[in-house]
Amino acid sequence: MHLYLNPDLVASYQKKSQKTRVLTETWMTENGYCPNCGNSTICKFKNNAPVADFFCPECDEQYELKSKAGKSLGTNVADGAYHTMIQRIQSDSNPNFFFLAYDRNHYSIKQLILVPKHFITTEMIIPRNKGIKGRPDYIMCSMNLSTLPESGKILLIDQDKVVEPSKVLQKWQDMLFLRKQKSEQKGWLLAILKCLDQLPEQFTLAQIYKFETQLATQFPNNRHIKDKIRQQLQVLRDQGLLEFSSCGQYRQINIKG
């Protein structure tokens, strides 16, 4: 991957938003690859496509690119119309998301993160109070990345360094099972993965039970939180992400790092 944008492309543009779009979309076209099948090329849809920005010509996986000036993405990334975004991520053709942070002064790529679509939930989409002048009902939104478990943020570039593509593809495959889960079950698995982020690689059942109150608030209709926790740990074990040992001991295998 080449880690610099080409400023010559936008010499005739005036608006920052136009410059950003042309610079980053051109960079992604020239440097991006498909994390699903490993194809070395992804193609750009025509401008203003209703579904996504890019697609893989080999496996048809779709991607949207969101860019932000800065050394890292932080927790919130500005997006477009709130209601449109909600409809898109609830549809069968919802895209995966690339989030790109760049240095506006030096035209360099600082960070690139992939969030697979099976990690995207409506709770991540936050409406912004400010509408568009003359269209008060047209509400914009932001995407809150802080709600994601770490396993849902796949690094392709971090701190000016490119992550080996084989590692990216492996992380994608490790969590691909979530795509087949029904909404409620997936919600529970994402919640448990988020809890595991706060635990050491080796942990006990007693340690994860400490999240019982938090999970009860998150899932108020469930009266058997501990049973549900154990059920999700079993699913993660079956997927090769956890290892069980005696006396309620657990080890995370392919979740952290």
Score class of each variant (00 low, 15 high):
His2Lys: 13
Leu9Glu: 12
Tyr13Asn: 00
Thr20Ile: 12
Arg21Thr: 01
Leu23Ile: 00
Leu23Trp: 02
Thr26Asn: 10
Thr29Glu: 10
Gly32Lys: 04
Gly32Gln: 15
Tyr33Phe: 09
Tyr33Ala: 12
Cys37Tyr: 10
Gly38Val: 02
Ser40Glu: 04
Ser40Leu: 12
Ile42Gln: 00
Ile42Phe: 05
Ile42Thr: 00
Asn47Pro: 08
Asn47Tyr: 06
Asn48Ile: 05
Phe54Ile: 03
Phe55His: 10
Cys56Lys: 05
Pro57Trp: 05
Cys59Ser: 13
Cys59Gln: 04
Asp60Met: 13
Asp60His: 15
Glu64Arg: 02
Leu65Thr: 04
Ser67His: 00
Gly70Arg: 06
Lys71Glu: 00
Ser72Lys: 11
Thr75Arg: 14
Thr84Asn: 15
Ile86Ser: 05
Gln87Asn: 07
Arg88Leu: 08
Pro95Met: 12
Asn96Gly: 02
Asn96Tyr: 13
Phe97Glu: 08
Phe97Ser: 06
Phe98Leu: 00
Phe99Lys: 05
Phe99Tyr: 10
Ala101Ser: 15
Asp103Asn: 12
Arg104Glu: 15
Tyr107Ile: 00
Ile109Tyr: 07
Ile109Cys: 10
Lys110Ile: 01
Lys110Asp: 13
Pro116Glu: 10
Met124Asn: 03
Pro127Glu: 01
Lys130Asp: 12
Met140Gln: 08
Cys141Ser: 13
Cys141Lys: 12
Ser142Ala: 06
Ser146Gly: 05
Thr147Arg: 02
Leu148Arg: 15
Leu148Thr: 09
Pro149Asp: 07
Pro149Tyr: 13
Pro149Met: 04
Ile154Tyr: 06
Ile154Gln: 04
Leu155Ile: 09
Leu156Phe: 08
Leu156Thr: 02
Ile157Ser: 11
Ile157Asp: 06
Gln159Lys: 06
Asp160Ser: 03
Val163His: 05
Val168Leu: 15
Leu169His: 08
Lys171Asn: 12
Leu176Pro: 10
Leu178Lys: 00
Leu178Gln: 00
Lys182Glu: 09
Gly187Phe: 03
Trp188Met: 07
Trp188Leu: 15
Leu190Glu: 01
Ile192Trp: 13
Leu193Gly: 10
Lys194Cys: 03
Cys195Asp: 09
Cys195Pro: 14
Pro200Thr: 05
Phe203Tyr: 08
Glu212His: 15
Leu215Ile: 02
Ala216Ile: 11
Asn221Gln: 14
Asn222Lys: 12
Ile229Val: 01
Arg230Thr: 13
Gln231Phe: 14
Gly240Arg: 03
Cys247Asn: 13
Asn254Glu: 14
Lys256Ala: 13
Gly257Thr: 14
